[in-house]
Design a protein around this nucleic acid. Structure first.
Lengths: 343, 343
DNA sequence: CTGAAAGCGCTTACAG
DNA sequence: CTGAAAGCGCTTACAG
């Protein structure tokens, strides 16, 4: 009964309205489809007046060249996958956030994937149906199935947190052992002798390196760890295991594999066990997340610098895209000591 | 000099190796391109043996249908933009993380954008060149330019944190005023009378509603706020402004607009000013981030439930995609009281 | 300087 | 049941 009836046959109410295409703009502007395409190209020749005219009409119609269609003709999609780490982990959350900003600034669009589902399931999803320019994986251990899948699809990989030896796979890692040795030396110089290590999950390469760095530094001083236990890198897990360690052993230094667990341990030591940190006991972290500097924690830790890491990822990415066949690279980042109030 | 010389003319070392296409698989399997396409379609007819044969060869070659090319023929790209909030903010970080998981589970791939650059700049980027199925915006206030841009491109919008009245734009918000009234009632019942409000940036709709809810509840008790100040929703900002408020006024209740600021205020009150919380002073937050439940904080707050919010976003999204022309919807989420140790 | 045409990799009516 | 062809929206040699 309305005036729309005629057209409704062709455009039912529930159809998604179509986005304007170059053809639509060409018709509206009275030019060819090619001219519209050229109006949005940096390199193509087109009369300035004509270009302005086309762009004005396009703006009115809300037209933008469809990147998916354009991508078919190009070699790049500008889409980059990020397999996020455990975002409950504060360091991983900060890293992800900065990575998103860094990639955006580099002209790439980050498609964020939930790494907690595991590589097997990830590989089975249709994210690999998209011609990603690269995949960035944050994780503590290598996923061979991920490496294989990306290799077959010619998707360059950047691993963030562990080293992978495969063609077109680059890595960026922290010098964990050296960072931990700095912490150990600080504590040894302060006179600490009874050390325990509160570690993370064993499959994390960084966890093993941090433990190794600690053990080596202690060995040089003729000491060894009194106890070693593992938690899940979380605040809660750290608190729980720290309680056991502190109750079962007479310690003067509790070295934790990351800040979140150290902060959990700090709460247990001070509030539950009534220990005086740092008078009776040193507690240290690793990473230097934002929270470590809060006055209520003031945590002594080793800084795993996020900005530098992200800059490294971007550098690896751009080099790899420029030269797909280049040999694999590994960037190592120094973790410097951050002396605060808990050692 | 090597046997490869002949082919190198056509494939220079630095060209990105090409991904296998349906044509490549067709040749290898001795079938038509159409057959390959059908082998990967749920609905198309294809002899079972032939399908198995094609899929086996495809697996060997690492072939997957290119989603970008397929997307040209479909109405959906399965790409969804997320304009992330301030990820330094713990609540926003949790929300983003859960949103990524929720969208992935719903078969959508989240492209994460850095909201801190501002809508004007975002709209100018070429992310809108991609035919996004939808855009999810986390933010405290409306960006008209974002709404206009999405409308022209027929990209449905979901606002998360403020209500927008425009066609094909849905919203999901917390019942901020009611949540804050619950906190106020709790404190009034406990006998508090001298209230101050530590708010967030004025342009955030949620901030205004939280303030309003507090004022109304106080008015009903014949009271009004002694002081109101604003910070930036951060821990550090909250600490700084809380110090001023507590030094300048004789308060028995400091109501904060979010948890991060409340935790900052808690540190200042207890450690710097030597106040006894909750004996002398109540401090409350809003959101109930993970950290609020840590024993060292044990913050009384109102829970702004992340899971429920994410479920609501997904529901709005799916309904909108199913019926693009449906009237705009608004979902409201209840913020329930979480009584802990700081009131 | 600009239009018509071919091609990017896929899907899907259309014939057979 | 399956192949050849048209079309999705774009870019870019190729002619003019």
């Amino acid at each position: 009964m309305t005036e729309d009836d005629g057209s409704m046959k062709f455009a039912p109410a529930d159809a998604a309205p179509r986005r304007a295409t170059a053809m639509d703009v060409a018709r509206a502007a009275g030019v060819s489809r090619s001219a519209v395409s050229r109006a949005f190209s940096q390199t193509a020749y087109l009369d300035t007046d004509k270009r302005d005219h086309i762009r004005r009409i396009a703006a009115e119609m809300g037209y933008r060249p469809n990147a998916l269609a354009a991508g078919l003709n190009r070699t790049r999609s500008n889409l980059v996958g990020i397999v996020a780490g455990d975002v409950g982990n504060l360091y991983d959350a900060q890293l992800l956030s900065r990575l998103v900003s860094g990639l955006t600034a580099a002209g790439k669009w980050p498609v964020v994937l939930d790494g907690s589902v595991g590589a097997d399931r990830l590989v089975a999803t249709d994210i690999f149906a998209y011609p990603l320019d690269a995949m960035i994986v944050r994780g503590g251990s290598v996923d061979p199935v991920m490496v294989d899948t990306c290799a077959k699809l010619h998707i360059p990989l950047v691993f963030l947190g562990c080293v992978v030896d495969a063609p077109a796979v680059d890595s960026i890692v922290c010098r964990n052992a050296e960072g931990m040795a700095r912490i150990a030396d600080l504590l040894l110089n302060r006179g600490r002798r009874r050390f325990a290590f509160l570690g993370g999950p064993a499959q994390w390469a960084s966890q093993q390196q941090r433990l190794q760095g600690l053990c080596d530094a202690l060995a040089q001083a003729g000491l060894q760890l009194i106890a070693t236990e593992s938690a899940d890198f979380s605040h809660q897990g750290g608190a729980k295991v720290a309680r056991r360690l502190l109750q079962d052993h007479d310690l003067d230094a509790l070295v934790c594999a990351n800040d979140a667990m150290a902060i959990g341990a700090l709460g247990v030591a001070r509030h539950d066990l009534g220990l005086n940190v740092p008078a009776d006991l040193s507690i240290t972290g690793f990473d230097d997340v934002d929270m470590a500097s809060w006055p209520c924690f003031d945590l002594t830790t080793a800084c795993n610098p996020v900005e530098e890491t992200v800059a490294g990822v971007i550098e690896l990415l751009e080099a790899r895209l420029a030269t797909p066949s280049a040999p694999s690279r590994r960037i190592q980042i120094d973790a410097h000591l951050v002396r605060r109030g808990t050692h």
